[in-house]
Measured scan of single mutants.
Amino acid sequence: TIDDAFRAIERAIQAENEGRYREALKHFLDGGEMIVTAAEKEASQKVRNLLLHKGKEVLEWAEHLAEWILE
């Protein structure tokens, strides 16, 4: 659900702030994927587009974090 997705993102932010970057990455990926999944089930085109945009933002952040971890 969207609530689960945002809880995962909150955990990711907390982990990132505490320097637990790999854990943060996992939570960002989980949250982003949950948002995209919820968007695919959404009946309203406007809400679907907003959710897809937010999911994409979260997944892009996860990608940047992963690249930073690997440096």
Rank of each mutant, 00 (worst) to 15 (best):
T1A: 10
T1C: 10
I2P: 03
I2L: 13
D4S: 07
D4I: 08
D4M: 11
D4R: 11
A5G: 05
A5Q: 02
F6S: 03
F6V: 06
R7P: 01
R7C: 08
R7F: 05
R7N: 06
A8I: 13
A8F: 13
I9R: 02
I9P: 00
I9A: 02
E10H: 13
E10W: 14
E10I: 15
R11Y: 08
A12W: 07
I13V: 09
I13W: 09
Q14A: 10
Q14M: 07
Q14I: 11
A15R: 02
A15M: 09
A15K: 03
E16I: 15
E16Q: 15
E16F: 15
N17T: 10
E18N: 08
E18M: 09
E18K: 06
E18R: 09
E18Y: 05
G19Y: 02
G19L: 03
G19S: 07
G19Q: 05
G19E: 01
R20G: 02
R20A: 03
R20L: 06
R20I: 02
Y21E: 01
Y21C: 09
R22F: 09
R22I: 11
R22D: 08
R22G: 07
R22L: 14
E23V: 04
E23C: 11
E23G: 02
E23Q: 06
A24T: 02
A24N: 01
A24G: 01
A24R: 03
L25T: 00
L25W: 09
K26L: 08
K26V: 06
K26Y: 08
K26C: 14
H27M: 13
H27F: 13
H27C: 09
F28S: 01
L29M: 09
L29T: 06
L29D: 00
D30S: 11
G31N: 02
G31F: 15
G31M: 06
E33M: 14
I35Q: 02
I35N: 02
I35E: 02
V36A: 08
V36D: 01
V36F: 14
V36W: 07
T37G: 08
T37N: 11
T37M: 12
T37I: 11
T37W: 09
A38K: 03
A38C: 12
A38V: 08
A39F: 09
A39T: 02
A39N: 03
A39R: 02
A39I: 09
E40A: 14
E40M: 15
E40I: 15
K41Y: 12
K41H: 10
K41E: 07
K41S: 09
E42W: 13
A43W: 11
A43F: 10
A43P: 13
A43T: 13
S44M: 10
S44V: 08
S44N: 14
K46R: 10
V47N: 05
R48I: 05
R48K: 09
R48V: 04
R48F: 05
N49Y: 07
N49L: 11
N49M: 10
L50Y: 13
L50I: 10
L50W: 15
L50D: 04
L50R: 11
L50F: 10
L51S: 00
L51T: 00
L52K: 06
L52V: 03
H53Y: 08
H53K: 15
K54D: 01
K54I: 15
G55S: 06
G55R: 10
K56D: 02
K56F: 07
E57A: 09
E57Y: 08
E57S: 07
V58R: 00
V58M: 06
E60S: 10
E60K: 14
E60T: 08
E60A: 13
E60Y: 07
W61D: 00
W61E: 01
W61S: 01
W61H: 11
A62H: 00
A62N: 00
E63A: 14
H64A: 09
H64V: 07
H64S: 08
H64L: 10
H64N: 07
H64Q: 10
H64K: 14
L65E: 00
L65D: 01
L65N: 00
A66T: 05
A66S: 06
E67L: 11
E67P: 01
E67I: 11
W68S: 03
W68M: 07
W68L: 10
W68G: 02
I69D: 01
I69L: 10
L70R: 13
L70D: 07
L70S: 10
L70P: 02
L70V: 11
E71Q: 12
E71W: 09
